[in-house]
């Protein structure tokens, strides 16, 4: 019975790891046509960064490591003279 319990536990943990290894984080309140910068440290401490130009008022960051909190991802608008409000 102990073996069965261990097996179930191992199976559940592996399913858990497989099912929620990534997540989506939605950024809202964006201005279409404006460029934004995103930055965060992934679970191995590596900096993930880059820029994107919003096409709608929201943007989804897909397949983010589930150990990262969405709120820890820094998204900020790039100030481009004549095109952005500060």
């Amino acid at each position: 019975m102990k073996k069965v319990t261990t097996l179930i536990l191992a199976l559940t943990i592996s399913i858990f790891a497989a099912c929620v290894s990534t997540q989506d984080c939605r950024v809202t309140g964006l201005a279409p046509g404006q460029t934004y910068v995103y930055m965060y440290d992934d679970s191995s401490g590596e900096l993930i960064s880059g820029e994107f130009t919003a096409q709608e008022d929201n943007y989804v960051l897909t397949e983010i490591d589930s150990r990262i909190q969405c709120s820890d991802i820094n998204v900020s608008k790039l100030y481009i003279a004549e095109y952005s409000d500060r």
């Binding site: 099912c19 939605r26 809202t28 309140g29 589930s66 991802i73 998204v75 608008k77």
Partner: peptide, 27 residues
């Protein structure tokens, strides 16, 4: 057990997916 785990995980995933970020520098 597997079914329960998957339902719980699915619910968790949906909750995480709907977590919204607000751009800190603009409203």
């Amino acid at each position: 057990s597997i079914l329960f785990a998957c339902i719980a995980l699915a619910a968790f995933a949906v909750w995480r997916s709907s977590a919204s970020l607000r751009d800190r520098n603009q409203l």
